[in-house]
Write a protein that binds this DNA or RNA. Structure first.
Lengths: 221, 221, 221, 221
DNA sequence: AATGAATGAGCCTTCATTCAT
DNA sequence: GATGAATGAAGGCTCATTCAT
């Protein structure tokens, strides 16, 4: 690690710092000190603090994808299995072993407060990931399900995963550390989200479910 | 507004600034200028920039709760209706009319990067909100459903709502502005989440669903 | 001096530094150190290094004018006397006792490399000074002398004075220190310029001198 | 031009940059970028930024002299013609076609703020130029005119020319762009300075003019 | 001979905070 | 109670220069 060339070392040091403190609060000094390089290196190799940030964000996505790759399944596998696997992988990417890794924390920042790196992040990372989920849902939904519904179902699944990333601390405060320790392992959570989502998905396969007006299934206020 | 006393004006001005830029990037100068008060007012009335931040966060929660109160329902209303109402209110709080209001943006920051204000926020705001959801779920779940499952189902519902708050920009990039304009109104999203969640909840009322091991319902990898 | 308020002290210290080193080479640190004030004072009181420079330039003009005021003459004095006095005052302003004072050095910089302070400098300082010379020349020139000729004669007089300010060092190298010590006192130079200019002015009073084409008075090449 | 060797290209690029911004404000980066050479070239070929500056100044003088050479006159030409030609050449050198060329702007900087290149500049350039003027004046002045007077008359002539170089911008602000466009061509200015100076020179040929005390020709204050 | 990488010094500016009034 | 002035610390960045290759 210490023998890498300067830009690589800066990039490696910038990741955790930006993830922990955000763009503003992170200082170039701190990053260069952590990387063991000269203070001017950032400006020499990346021109800007901002350019360094953008490069760091891009690298975070590639890195996390490589750390937790999406396993390839035989094409004949049932969609329920595929969905469970997708959810498991997604959650694993987001949670890590001991707290969310910096790559994910950095990407979460980017999702919530998009910078100029966001567009590329969506194109190279979020969209392919989401497309993969859509392909699975296509096997679980009737062919006449409208596109926006397929999307929103996708967001319902992603949102459940994402929430354990975003609100982990608040959730711990609410349910207590004991329950978390006992029941909030990545596997257990993936299992729950899978069950919850598969059960929800089942309804859309019932005949007429897509045409029933909301007012019919539930009384108005 | 301009006739309020100094601390109030500072607090009012600090809200949007902290929400937009975060604690670090926000400057005391900017806040005081927006409030039309002396630069030293923050330190005089709040001792610290940090104390001001904490007060602003607390105020944000109270304010947002007052803006979008949870409607009271007759105790006899069916739990499905109660759930839909809860989801609608939650989403409305999060989304606002034109983009998320500063109160919500600020609270989202606090959820993702908790400060010392977080604990109080959970106690006064998130936990009561979550408890209300639990009460509704208690009517929809069998009595023997374990506590952690009730919690996780709650998080599945909250997470779906929260995702539209957190990832709105990324979602727009993925599905396109047209679909968002046509199908992502607060009401439409609330309806979708309600349907999705009610369908998922139905399974837990089936006999034996709570005892079936996951490995039984789905084949292993 | 040391009891003046901060902006005044900064301004006083900035004068010589800017005059010696120019805008770029002068450092805010050096100025503040010379003024005995905090480094941030410049930005607090003048917002910018540039604003401080502009203020310093303006102040230099007023200061120098007050140091060497143009003496008032009785209206009946012969124009030759007025001209000599004008030249003497102009030269004295430019030369000072021991080298050009910082006010003049700074203004010379501004003449050669105008900044945004230049326009105001011309309006408040150079133009009134030049107008005074024009009034004297009006008494020495025939009424039908064209305006541009009056102006150029003015510049011929100012230019002679200015040259001792601009090229002093080069002139010393050319004629030697001895000649300078013996014959280049401000008074002697003023006397020479006066004689030279009055003799030149005499020709324009000769009848026909203004209509004679240059080709008549001097053979072409 | 682009095929010249590196030092030549650096020198060529340094000229305009130093002329425009001065030694301090000019950056080695900018010069090397303009020259299309490596950033380290300056230090490699010239050791210093300062050495490069000095070389550039020297080159500027030689270059300008070659661009506007002093025309050779038949020895029998009348001194008035010689003087007019001298003034014309001097002014042309200083003014250029569209603004002063970088060579002159750079030399002007050197005159006003002499560096170590100045001495050589005087020896190789200014002094020979001034000597040539002195030779002309020798034909126009009585033999007993003292040396310092001959010098000062020379400076009076050079100073008139130089002033259009130094104060051009201020002069434009004072007399207006229209008058400048109509009456400040290099030829017209040379004509005026020649007329003005020749008329002044005439007086020194009058008997007794050199011995008359100033107090006799003009009343005291 | 020439260069890409790296460096240490220093720049201007901004910041939250304090203090005398 | 409130404020204008002042401050020390730090920030990002640029610069001329050096060095290994």
């Amino acid at each position: 690690m210490a023998t890498d060339d300067t830009p690589t070392r800066v990039l490696a040091a910038a990741g955790p710092v930006f993830a922990d403190k955000g763009f503003q609060a992170a200082t170039v000094r701190e990053i260069c000190q952590a990387a063991g390089v000269n203070l001017a290196s950032v400006n020499y190799h990346f021109r800007d603090k901002e350019r360094l940030y953008i490069e760091t964000v891009k690298r975070a996505a590639h890195l996390r994808e490589a750390q937790v790759p999406m396993p390839e399944l035989p094409p004949g596998a049932p969609p329920e299995v595929k969905l469970r696997l997708f959810i498991q992988t997604t959650l694993t990417r987001m949670m890590g072993d001991r707290g969310a890794p910096w790559q994910v924390r950095l990407m979460t920042r980017e999702v919530l407060h998009p910078s100029s790196a966001c567009e590329e992040l969506v194109r190279d990372y979020f969209r392919p990931h989401f497309d993969r989920l859509q392909a699975i849902l296509n096997e679980l939904l009737p062919p006449d399900a409208p596109l926006h519904l397929r999307h929103q179902i996708g967001f319902s699944i992603i949102g459940q995963c994402m929430h354990y990333r975003v609100a982990w601390h608040v959730m711990t405060l609410i349910v207590g550390a004991d329950e978390v320790a006992a029941h909030y392992s990545t596997d257990a959570l993936a299992e729950h989200i899978t069950q919850f989502s598969l059960a929800a998905l089942a309804q859309y396969r019932k005949p007429g479910s897509l045409t029933a007006a909301p007012s019919e299934s539930l009384p108005p206020l």
